[in-house]
């Protein structure tokens, strides 16, 4: 049996009266790429943000690499974890944002080293070395002393991927990583992500790039109004959708 990297059961999340996730089940095996698709407001970003606890879920079980996230089970009760413990969990889960969210006051190299130095306590020289290796990997080794504002969107997103990888995560989360990019820059980011998938990284990707989902994903989940409508092999789900909802959705995005 393959080891489950992400194991989610009956996850619920609401903002006041607005139920965003109404009992979601999702599993991601180690080394697999999972794509979350669905119309905007369907809860796919919220689901992703629950995995690294940028959003706290209200109910349900959320495990990453076998460990409970956000809560601790003692004597049959779930205790909220302290901020310190949440930080340790987050450090092991990389995240890439739609709007890059690079630190604009730091150079490209500093963006990639700050987490290693401040969170993991790695010596600056070792952090620099690792950062340069990662920059080479995403094809930006000439840009280390630039500031983010001096880079194109595609370059910024590749730096953001390098920043997340610098923490040596066991899981990478991507929140619509190409949605804020000009069309001609989408390819370079997807290439880096494909490369990452081939290297065996476990990835959960919220995306509207159906081509990427079909080509790279091992499984795809279609969310609609806070529930999983359909899931399975992308070559099955995307080609022969069972539900009317998914058929409608695919006809709009393809």
């Amino acid at each position: 049996m393959t080891q489950l990297m992400v194991d989610i059961k009956a996850l619920r999340k609401s903002y006041g009266a607005n139920d965003v996730l109404k009992g979601v089940d999702l599993t991601v095996a180690s080394g697999e790429v999972t794509c979350l698709i669905g119309p905007s407001g369907s809860g796919k970003s919220t689901l992703l943000r629950c995995i690294n606890q940028l959003e706290k879920h209200d109910a349900g079980i959320l495990r990453v690499d076998g460990e409970l996230i956000g809560y601790q089970l003692r004597n049959g009760k779930l205790y909220e974890r302290s901020e310190r413990e949440l930080c340790d969990d987050r450090a092991a889960i990389g995240m890439v944002f739609q709007r890059f969210n690079l630190f604009p006051h730091l150079t490209v190299l500093e963006n990639i080293t700050i987490g290693q130095v401040r969170v993991k306590g790695i010596a600056p020289s070792a952090a620099d070395k690792k950062a340069r290796e990662l920059l080479t990997r995403v094809g930006l080794d000439a840009k280390e002393s630039h500031y983010p504002s001096q880079l194109s969107g595609g370059q910024q997103q590749r730096v953001a991927i390098a920043r997340a990888l610098a923490m040596e995560p066991k899981l990478m989360l991507f929140d619509e990583p190409t949605s804020a990019l000009d069309p001609e820059l989408v390819g370079e980011v997807l290439d880096v992500m494909k490369d990452l998938a081939r290297s065996g990284m476990t990835m959960v990707v919220v995306t509207h790039e159906m081509g990427f989902a079909r080509e790279v994903a091992d499984s795809v989940y279609f969310l609609d109004a806070g529930i999983i409508e359909e899931s399975g092999d992308p070559r099955e789900v995307l080609v022969r959708p069972q539900s009317q909802r998914l058929r409608d959705f695919l006809s709009k995005v393809l």
Binding site: C87, D88, M95, V119, M167
Partner: peptide, 12 residues
């Protein structure tokens, strides 16, 4: 997004 990015790399 800056606070989220900082949290996401494990900063307190």
């Amino acid at each position: 997004g800056q606070l989220e990015a900082a949290k996401a790399i494990g900063m307190t």
